[in-house]
Design a protein around this nucleic acid. Structure first.
Lengths: 146, 146
DNA sequence: AATAAAAAGCAACAATGTTGCAAAATATTA
DNA sequence: TAATATTTTGCAACATTGTTGCTTTTTATT
């Protein structure tokens, strides 16, 4: 039973990789699993720490880059020089992220969450500026820490 | 005449430092001048490059940190692991930034601007989340590049 | 001008990110 | 399924970025 669940997860992950025409490798599976089994965003460092088996740092960098390129994960800007990554919803496709949700950073537990139900507001810009992507990061206390 | 203008600038800078009870030193004056004489935000690297006279890297790090602590400059999060800094308006005070404006990153010239007249919108969060600071970064084409 | 306080510079180090290349793993083809 | 082509990994070496302790220099205070 337990084993079956793992198998299922494994299939889910393999499928995701295949759909993005990526070969199925140990590190890619492990890193995707980390994203799937926890709600928040992960920084490069988190991944190295949590990935029980040790992968080369270079592999982690390259894997994250590949996932971003494929639209599997997206980056979240921070004010502390440590980019965080989070899974994209299915609407994302290669080279075209539809991450119109906002991001929430809990000042207590320091976790970063995608609030998929909260869409970024329209921003009215001064004359002469034209808007592309809008990124909103809210700091505060999350549901769990309240 | 030219010299007088420099003097004036110099006084302005010295005054700003004094008001924040910071001693007046060469590197602080030079770095402040860089911020004053250009509209956008600066990353640590920009400052090292533009500060004709060479300051020790450590001095630049410590100066920026001091300015942030005093509320003279504030940080702008980015998605490329290079924090940018911009001058605060006068309303900022030590340990208490009132930077409720949004930030604009031009994808063409890569400059970052504070749009002081555009205030951050209210964000309605899901139940359980409480909002503190809201950071909005808009990517697009700026006035000058249009 | 003498002294006290603060900042700068230096050296050494730690952490983070990048590149080229050989070995290993994965995918493809027959 | 075995042989081959392709891709990915791990390693080594390096570059960049950020940090800390300490001495010298500069600035402020008396």
């Amino acid at each position: 039973m337990q084993k079956e669940l793992f198998m299922q997860m494994d299939n889910q992950i393999a499928g995701l990789l295949k759909r993005n025409s990526l070969s199925i490798t140990g590190s890619r599976k492990k890193i995707l699993q980390l994203f799937l089994e926890q709600p928040g965003a992960l920084a490069h460092g988190d991944i190295e720490k949590r990935a029980g088996e040790k992968f080369d740092r270079v592999t982690v960098y390259r894997t994250l880059q590949t996932f971003v390129d494929k639209g599997i994960i997206h980056t979240i800007p921070t004010a502390d020089n440590s980019i965080r990554y989070a899974l994209c919803k299915d609407e994302c496709s290669e080279g075209h992220h539809h991450d119109h949700h906002i991001h929430f950073v809990c000042t207590n537990c320091t976790n970063t969450y995608c609030l998929d139900d909260v869409v970024t507001p329209e921003i009215k810009l001064p004359k002469g500026y034209s808007a592309g992507h809008v990124e909103v990061v809210v700091e505060g206390i999350c549901k769990n820490c309240k």
